[in-house]
Design a protein around this nucleic acid. Structure first.
Lengths: 155, 155
DNA sequence: GGTGAAAGGTCATTAAG
DNA sequence: CTTAATGACCTTTCACC
């Protein structure tokens, strides 16, 4: 149920230089090309590697403002219809159901603070949303990363 | 400072089928191969496309628990040394400085609820961290996504 | 291991802003 | 006039059988 060092090194290598192919990986890691292929297939089959899609920076698209919005929802209605409506808003990048005082936590982006108000209004207008509470991310000193985790898991 | 429809379609295409190459993209979009390459280079140069690295699912590595930890830090010490220490913890996937009652928001993962306690203890032990407040993500009905945003930006 | 197929680069031409 | 797109050619490299 875990990965070994070779898997971890393979993932790290691909993360640092995604453009290289299987053959180049095998050379860098001093293993046979078939081994690399088999490892990648196995990692993909186990769901460890979800995909290789292009990673987009919302800030480069003009969405400079990131905020975390905690929602309280009307319990009777259930959370599914709320999620469906939230998913229709492009600026909502992810939604979690959470423990604690709130019921859901959304990561949202916007083009400015004024634009954030518009996005939050969209969220508040969702049927079943009772209240929202937002915090704005001023800076992101540690951007999302998984490599250290991969390295730790491969130990 | 934005992208056009061709950029958006190109990104969407690559996101849906990352394994296809530049030539295949040009065929699907009915444009010349050089155009696709130029667009991709431009998107990468502008920072819109950060990379093509493998996307890792922490849950598949055994890290089933995700939590958001809000930190209050001792203001006199500044946040930089705190960030440096937090970055050393593999389970800390991202760190933001935020507005509101807290000072920082961290996304962390752990192997179990008991393991989460261990990770939180690591965070509390960081010099300058005064208090933490955690919420656990029970479910993630909308996983992190940027495609709708790209589509909206390309309009 | 061999082979067909792309990637990546450059170029001249053409179109459009 | 500047920027972008196109189709062509070439060489290296890889993926697949």
């Amino acid at each position: 149920m875990t990965i070994d060092q070779l898997d971890a090194r393979l993932i790290s290598l691909l993360a640092q230089e995604p453009r290289i192919g299987v053959l180049e990986c095998s050379r860098r890691l001093n293993v046979a090309r078939g081994t690399v292929q088999a490892r990648l297939d196995r990692l993909a089959a186990r769901g460890v590697i979800v995909g290789y899609g292009p990673q987009i920076d919302p800030a480069a698209l003009g969405y400079d403002v990131t905020a975390f919005v905690t929602l309280q929802i009307r319990q009777v209605s259930g959370h599914v219809p709320v999620v469906d409506r939230l998913a229709l808003v492009p600026e909502v990048l992810e939604v979690h159901t959470i423990t604690g005082g709130g019921d859901m936590l959304c990561r949202v982006v916007a083009r400015s603070n004024a634009d954030l108000q518009r996005v939050i209004d969209l969220i508040v207008d969702v049927e079943g949303v009772v209240r929202t509470s937002s915090v704005i991310a001023l800076d992101t000193p540690v951007p999302y990363r998984t490599l250290p985790l991969v390295a730790a898991a491969g130990t």
